[in-house]
């Protein structure tokens, strides 16, 4: 394998593994910036994964190659619906954010398998036929060297995820909606006195996290696992949560962290094809994202980096 194709292999597998993390961590960034801690990303991804797989299996013959894309949207919509539970519990019913998020994680896998069993009469779906696969980006793929490394045989969802990152960064820091959303995560009382609807902003934050994590789960299922079972989503949601923190609650930071974690994950899988890497036990790559997150939290981050009112219930008195 020459150096160029080696690099192309690493880049494309990094992108494949990063895409679900980027999308999901963006959701986490929105939820936490509005003041709602969401450790239920894992559960929401699970919902996104199984709904998209069911859609894909049911409609692949009708939509052809567009199926995974529509499936991703379906996963995102069901992710949003599922996240309503978390929103309602934490925003209206003052539930502890961690417990409520844990409920999402406890609920999603059995719910998914229950439905799969009810529909397919076994604990695991068949494999999908229409998955995201690998794409050549038109135009960019023809650039010498760079085209081959970055834009040939690459993951289209990953490039979309990067574009969405930039869009969501712009919304969060440059628009009125973003300013208001962040204000409810920083000081909900101040926001309230200024006539901002804290509950509405927090709903927007949580529903965005549901949408994005659902999307992330759907992309994972339709580009990596290819089917749904109880062990489809194991840890990706928590890794996305780690990316939120490593990325300092900022969309761009979360994206870069996700790319890094995706890189570590892909090394643990394609490592044996790479000279030098093959000798390192895969366990180091597997635990790297989690160890790094702890180290980063210990060394570099004070609590001041998280939105000040993240995880604090807002109770309007009347």
């Amino acid at each position: 394998m020459n150096f160029e194709s080696l690099l192309a292999l690493i880049v494309s597998s990094t992108l494949v593994y990063s895409a679900p993390l980027i999308l999901t961590s963006l959701g986490g960034v929105y939820s936490e910036n509005s003041g709602i801690v969401n450790i239920g990303l894992e559960g929401i991804m699970t919902v996104g994964a199984f709904t998209s797989i069911i859609f894909n299996l049911t409609f692949a013959h009708a939509f052809g190659s567009a199926t995974p894309w529509i499936g991703a949207l379906v996963g995102a919509i069901f992710g949003s619906i599922f996240s309503l539970l978390h929103a309602f519990a934490t925003i209206n019913l003052r539930a502890d954010h961690i417990i409520s998020g844990t409920v999402l994680n406890l609920l999603a896998p059995p719910l998914g398998v229950f439905l799969i069993k009810a529909i397919y009469e076994k604990g695991q779906t068949p494999n999908i036929t229409a998955n995201f696969g690998y794409t050549n980006i038109p135009g960019l793929a023809n650039i010498p060297v760079i085209g081959k490394i970055f834009f040939t045989n690459t993951s289209a969802p990953a490039w979309w995820a990067i574009i969405i990152t930039i869009f969501l960064w712009w919304v969060l820091y440059k628009t009125r909606l973003g300013l208001r959303l962040r204000s409810t995560g920083e000081n909900p009382q101040a926001a309230d006195t200024l006539g901002i609807n804290v509950y509405k902003m927090r709903y927007i934050g949580v529903l965005t996290s549901g949408f994005m994590a659902g999307l992330g789960g759907a992309v994972f299922a339709q580009s990596i696992s290819g089917n749904f079972s109880i062990s489809t989503i194991v840890g990706q949601g928590f890794m996305a949560l780690a990316a939120v923190i490593f990325g300092k609650w900022n969309p761009i930071g979360a994206m870069l962290s996700s790319l890094f974690f995706g890189f570590a994950q892909s090394l643990s899988i394609i490592g044996n094809q790479l000279p030098g890497i093959a000798k390192i036990p895969t366990v180091y790559m597997q635990i790297a994202p989690y160890v790094i997150t702890i180290v980063v939290l210990v060394l570099f981050l004070g609590k001041s980096v998280a939105p000040a009112a993240d995880g604090v219930n807002y109770i309007k008195s009347k």
Binding site: I39, F238, M239, L241, Y290, V291, T293, I294, L297, K303
Partner: peptide, 14 residues
């Protein structure tokens, strides 16, 4: 002062 929710989640996977 590291938040224990995050560290214990990460430790689960480690």
């Amino acid at each position: 002062g590291t938040n224990e929710v995050i560290t214990t989640i990460m430790l689960n996977y480690i």
